[in-house]
Amino acid sequence: MTMEEKTMKTERVYEGKIINLRVDTVELPDKKYSKREIVEHSGAVGIIALTDSGNIVLVKQFRKPVEDSLLEIPAGKIEKDEEADACALRELEEETGYRTSNMQKLISFYTTPGFSNEVIHLYLALDLDKGIATPDEDEYIEVVELSIQDALEMIELGEIKDAKTIIGILTANQRFLKKANS
């Protein structure tokens, strides 16, 4: 049995700066119909930036949807006609002031495929050069550096709650840091 849903009709509900919302009427595999509310997003990047001393560079900022200040990896939305690699370099510098010529892509993943098409591309940035952060005019960001061990403990304690940050720290730890320490 095929698991695909055939789109029969699309209704555009909202078009915004960050997201669009559409409602699709779909035909299910059993020939019944249903509606799917879909958030369209252009994609984003997240950067696991490691200093020469082995600390991870995070940003702390207030997130209105969850009414809390969160510790996160530097990240941002991919702009129209922008490549993910270029976006990662831009966001790292804008949010933290750090620049690098040593950035490698780690993984890409869907954030919430039950209702959104957003993909986040995670990068590892090494050999950082410190500059001056230039966040967007509506961003109030505090740069925080933590040891990987402290970051891992904060994940376990529920103090780091952002999914892309948790995935990034765990991926970097698994792929690179454990190998470097063995």
Rank of each mutant, 00 (worst) to 15 (best):
Glu11Gln: 08
Arg12Thr: 11
Gly16Ser: 08
Asn20Leu: 04
Val23Asn: 08
Glu27Leu: 11
Tyr33Gln: 11
Lys35Asp: 05
Glu37Ile: 09
Ile38Thr: 14
Ser42Cys: 06
Ser42Asn: 13
Ala44Pro: 02
Ala44Cys: 06
Gly46Glu: 00
Ile47Met: 13
Ala49Thr: 00
Leu50Val: 09
Thr51Gly: 03
Ser53Asn: 10
Gly54Asp: 03
Val57Ser: 00
Lys60Met: 04
Gln61Gly: 12
Lys64Asn: 02
Lys64Leu: 05
Pro65Thr: 03
Glu67Lys: 05
Glu67Leu: 06
Ile73Lys: 03
Ile78Phe: 11
Glu79Tyr: 10
Lys80Pro: 11
Asp81Trp: 15
Asp81Leu: 14
Glu83Trp: 11
Glu83Ser: 11
Ala84Ser: 15
Ala84Glu: 07
Asp85Gln: 06
Ala86Ile: 07
Cys87Gly: 07
Cys87Pro: 10
Glu95Gln: 14
Glu95Gly: 07
Thr96Leu: 04
Thr96Lys: 04
Thr100Asp: 02
Asn102Glu: 09
Gln104Ile: 00
Gln104Ser: 14
Leu106His: 09
Leu106Ala: 09
Leu106Met: 13
Ile107Arg: 15
Phe109Tyr: 13
Tyr110Thr: 05
Thr111Tyr: 08
Thr112Met: 15
Gly114Val: 09
Asn117Glu: 08
Val119Lys: 14
His121Trp: 08
Leu126Arg: 14
Asp129Val: 13
Asp129Thr: 06
Lys130Gly: 05
Gly131Tyr: 05
Ile132Tyr: 07
Thr134Met: 10
Thr134Lys: 09
Pro135Asn: 07
Asp136Leu: 12
Glu137Asn: 00
Asp138Phe: 10
Glu139Cys: 12
Glu142Ile: 05
Ser147His: 04
Gln149Thr: 10
Gln149Cys: 01
Asp150Tyr: 06
Met154Asn: 05
Ile155Glu: 01
Leu157His: 12
Lys161Ile: 13
Lys164Ile: 15
Ile167Glu: 04
Ile167Gln: 07
Ile167Arg: 12
Leu170His: 08
Leu170Lys: 14
Asn173Leu: 09
Asn173Ser: 12
Gln174Trp: 12
Arg175Met: 13
Lys178Val: 15
Lys179Arg: 12
Ala180Tyr: 09
Ala180Gly: 15
Ala180Met: 15
Asn181Thr: 11
Asn181Gln: 15
